[in-house]
């Protein structure tokens, strides 16, 4: 387990968290290398099927992050994302997906150090939880092959 390097996918919005992560870079704040950022126009665009897809593909942890409430570049996309997240949590819980594997956060364009904290916290948490093999048991690979068409 000591050698376990978690694979973490971050789904972030272009205006706040992506810019915030840019600020982390400009400020030269160091964080764990385990995260891969995927840029979306808004957290409202994030279809949560993508999160399941990421788990399906072997992700150990996921970060979803966007603008703080009221700060959405598109007025209300983050509220939709939040509401969707509340539903998604319930669903995950019901089907047996460990909700601790997903971190939902707000990181603004001014919060470079918060982004580093969010990543490091997630990496530490996922390291403790270990590799996510349970998901593969839930969603058997034939399903994946079908969706991949």
């Amino acid at each position: 387990m000591a050698d376990f390097e978690p694979k973490i996918v971050a789904f972030v919005c272009n205006w706040c968290t992506y810019a915030g992560a840019d600020l982390t870079g400009t400020s030269r704040i160091k964080y764990a290398t385990n995260v891969r950022i995927i840029r979306f126009p808004c957290t409202g665009r994030i279809d949560y099927m993508l999160l399941l897809k990421a788990f399906d593909e072997g992700a150990d942890g996921i970060i979803v992050s966007g603008c703080h409430p009221n700060d959405c570049h598109y007025t209300s996309g983050n509220f939709h994302a939040r509401r969707r997240w509340i539903m998604f949590r319930e669903l995950c819980d019901f089907v047996g997906i460990d909700i601790n594997r997903v971190l939902f956060s707000w990181v603004s364009a001014a919060e470079g150090s918060k982004w580093a904290d969010v990543v490091n916290t997630t990496v530490t948490r996922i390291r403790e939880l270990g590799p996510y093999t349970e998901y593969q048991k839930v969603a058997k690979h034939p399903i994946r092959e079908v969706t991949n068409g």
């Binding site: 996918v9 995927i38 126009p41 409202g44 665009r45 279809d47 897809k53 593909e57």
Partner: peptide, 27 residues
Amino acid sequence: CGTCVAFCRTKSIDIQGYTHEEMYSEV
């Protein structure tokens, strides 16, 4: 913003530059 894209039940609406195909290929 693409909020409608995530809402659409039949995946009939898509956003240019961040399409379903593009985002799934990234993941």
